[in-house]
Write a protein that binds this DNA or RNA. Structure first.
Length: 256
DNA sequence: GCGACAG
DNA sequence: ATCTTGTCGC
């Protein structure tokens, strides 16, 4: 899979100001509404569903592992519980992690892995924010727009925005909107994502919610719906877990 | 100046 | 993100 919008491919050599300008352009090109052909209700990791196997969407998970100044990027595509294809890439990192500019550090390496992928997924789950971003162009949005593929972002922490309600000690399945605040390039109160309690009381310690947000061609409401459908018995959705495990596997083989 | 801050 | 074994608890 190659970039559909080469002009938005992350260039780590840009100045910080140029990166931020590009992010505003990307946010403008992004579509935070449902624009995809598959049925969200057909998304699940279950072995058996009412939906014919071939009609179940191809879902991709993306994650990375790191070693020294290199990134190990992994993409795993699955149809229901069946893994269809896995692709990876080991790429030199050029800039450090800077909150708000994550996609300029990890975007190139991720696109390298997608170049090695033959399958065209129906949508992609990224580890990080999408619209929940200062300029509404987090990793999931940046990658979604560059590849022009429906995408969502799943983060373990909140970058910006304000939860409508307190997220403390909520039961499984609970959710609340994340609204834009003065740190976000959007009218105050704009719903840019959701806090979603995917798992709770796995043991004795409290578990924090997931922060999900639209990447590209998916609305905020549908984003939570899709992520919920992809969560099994763990906090993180299955596509992310598969990609995480594959990235670790590639890293191990690379190190050995 | 102080605080916040995805991976 | 990464450095890292055992261990407490359901």
């Amino acid at each position: 899979m190659i970039p559909a919008r080469p002009e938005f491919v992350p260039d780590p050599t840009l100045s910080r100001e140029e990166m931020e300008t590009l992010q505003r352009d990307i946010a403008h090109a992004a579509r935070f509404e449902d624009e995809f052909a598959f049925d969200p209700a057909a998304v699940s990791t279950a072995e058996t569903t009412l939906v014919p196997q071939e009609e179940r969407p191809l879902v991709a998970g993306v994650d990375q592992a790191f070693l020294d100044e290199k990134a190990v990027s992994a993409v795993v595509v699955a149809r229901g519980p069946e893994i269809v294809e896995r692709a990876s890439a080991v790429t030199d990192l050029s800039i450090p992690y800077i909150p708000g500019l994550l996609s300029f550090r990890e975007g190139g390496p991720i696109l390298d892995a997608f170049e090695n992928l033959e399958t065209d997924p129906d949508f992609v789950v990224f580890d990080g924010s999408g619209r929940i971003h200062f300029r509404q162009a987090g990793l999931a949005t940046h990658m979604g727009v560059v590849l022009d593929v429906p995408s969502v972002g799943v983060a373990k922490g909140l970058l910006c925005g304000t939860p409508r309600e307190s997220v403390d000690e909520r039961p499984e399945g609970w959710r609340t909107a994340i609204e834009a605040n003065d740190r976000v390039d959007a009218p105050d109160g704009t719903v840019i994502g959701y806090a979603f309690q995917s798992r709770q009381y796995a043991s004795s310690r409290k578990i924090n919610p997931l922060y999900v947000s639209p990447g590209h061609r998916v609305s905020a409401a549908t984003t939570v719906d899709l992520v919920e459908r992809l969560c099994d018995s763990y906090k993180l959705p299955e596509p992310t877990r598969l990609a995480d495990a594959y990235a670790d596997e590639v890293k191990r083989d690379y190190t050995a």
